[in-house]
Amino acid sequence: MTLPAPAIAIRRLSKSYGRTEVLHGIDLEIARGATTCLIGPSGSGKSTLLRCIAFLEEATSGTILIDGQPLGFEEQAAGRRVRLPPQRIRKVRSGIGMVFQQFNLWPHMTALGNVTEALVTVKGLSRQEADARGMAQLRRVGLEARARHYPSELSGGQQQRVAIARALALEPEILLFDEPTASLDPELTGEVLNVMRDLGGEGMTMVVVTHEIGFAATVGQRIVFLDHGRVLLNGTPAELFAAPRHPRLTQFLETYLDRGAAMLLKPA
């Protein structure tokens, strides 16, 4: 019996800024159809890793395979790493959607305009067809009624849901979230997490960098704990959070006692 190929396979991935190496030879496989949460202290490299998967950062060495296809660089027989042509990079990237901490909606376009922009500009759909698809995605995040609003007329939570709809519009295989609720008021995080929970339930492959430990523990099927640019732990929430815990993880969770992680620290 062969296991299905992972959605994302990361091999010996390192990333340096100047002389500072922030990722040290990461090896990681992301399962298809599952929600994987990347957690860890700030500076642990979790956002950098996610940005490498989105190809917003170029790793210094190592490879990333998306659905078996090399992203950005290909390792050749002699161990040399060559940059792939732009069309191939775009092709592989098109299977990945990204949601940012700061939403990054384009302020001069309506919610619908944000969602349909790439459908028209990149995919070449007619305005009518793009609008129909865009409305379907807005419906999915519960914002059909806000389609004609500009980002400045939407709450933070609504903006982030539009950003999720924008990423979904291109029908990606994989959705990446970079601290999607970190810049939201606490009462607005729920609506965004609910949308993400629904997507996870539909079998979307998601990689979520998050500080929402409660979300990670309840929605994440895999938890990857990064520390100082290395994968320290990788397992199911049950495995990771059950006693005996890794001391570094316990130390990290203790900083979260006031964010609903207290339950995880109770003796099993």
Partner: peptide, 27 residues
Amino acid sequence: VPRGHVEAAQCVGLSQAQIVRRILIPE
């Protein structure tokens, strides 16, 4: 223009020229 607005455009596949025309100039 915030760097993230350009990154969001890159992520949905806009080319450099399309980013200038559709995102950078209007913003």
